[in-house]
């Protein structure tokens, strides 16, 4: 399952659960009861919800920090390096082909305004991105899982032809490339 699909399903489940609570409250709202006991029960529920979010959710979000892409760059030994330069409205790479299953270090910068370096797999799904900024070199490490033509799209609005700022990086099968 892709990160996108998992994100969609988690969001959808939470939103539907929330909607069910609202619909239930609305459906039961016509019959009045004493407010103070109801409020006390609501406070109890609130405390349970809060502690659930703290005890369950907080460790999860901290655990998810292990997947930060920022940490991988320094940890990779002997990566394939691609220097990426962006300019209104085109991309330049010092190599256009890399090998699958072997880490690639993208050194991304811009010669003019902010751009967004977005890598899309052959099915059109984004697999990685990093901002391209003038005056900075952002290092992103990504390991391509499969060979194919990966599109590079601009993901930060950069002016008139932002939507036309595209290029391609070719990923060859492991062990059979010039990488």
């Amino acid at each position: 399952m892709t990160v996108q699909t998992l994100s969609l399903l988690v969001s959808l489940a939470a939103i539907v659960a929330l909607a069910a609570v609202f619909l239930r409250v609305r459906a039961l709202s016509h019959t009045p009861v004493d407010y103070p006991p109801l409020l006390a029960r609501a406070y109890r529920l609130g405390r349970i919800a809060l502690w659930t979010m703290v005890v369950v959710g907080l460790p999860v979000t901290v655990w998810l920090l292990r997947y930060m892409p920022h940490t991988t760059a320094a940890a990779v030994a002997d990566p394939q390096v691609v220097n990426v330069s962006s300019t209104q409205w085109f991309w330049e790479f010092d190599r256009e082909s890399v090998e699958a299953s072997k880490p690639v270090e993208f050194h991304v910068t811009s010669t003019d305004v902010n751009h967004g370096f977005g890598l899309y797999d052959p099915s059109g799904r984004m697999v990685a991105q990093v901002q391209a900024m003038p005056g900075y070199i952002n290092v992103m490490t990504h390991t391509f899982e499969a060979a194919g033509d990966y599109r590079v799209l601009c993901l930060e609005y950069c002016g008139l032809a932002h939507h036309a700022m595209e290029s391609v990086i070719t990923v060859t099968a492991a062990g059979g490339s010039n990488g």
Binding site: V3, S11, I15, F22, M68
Partner: peptide, 26 residues
């Protein structure tokens, strides 16, 4: 109130770095 609370959910999901890595600026 529903819109506010529900709107928070995809925002929190996107604020997760590993999600943002493939969903930021989409």
């Amino acid at each position: 109130m529903f819109g506010w609370m529900a709107g928070v959910i995809p925002a929190v999901v996107d604020a997760t770095v590993s999600v943002n890595y493939v969903m930021h600026n989409t």
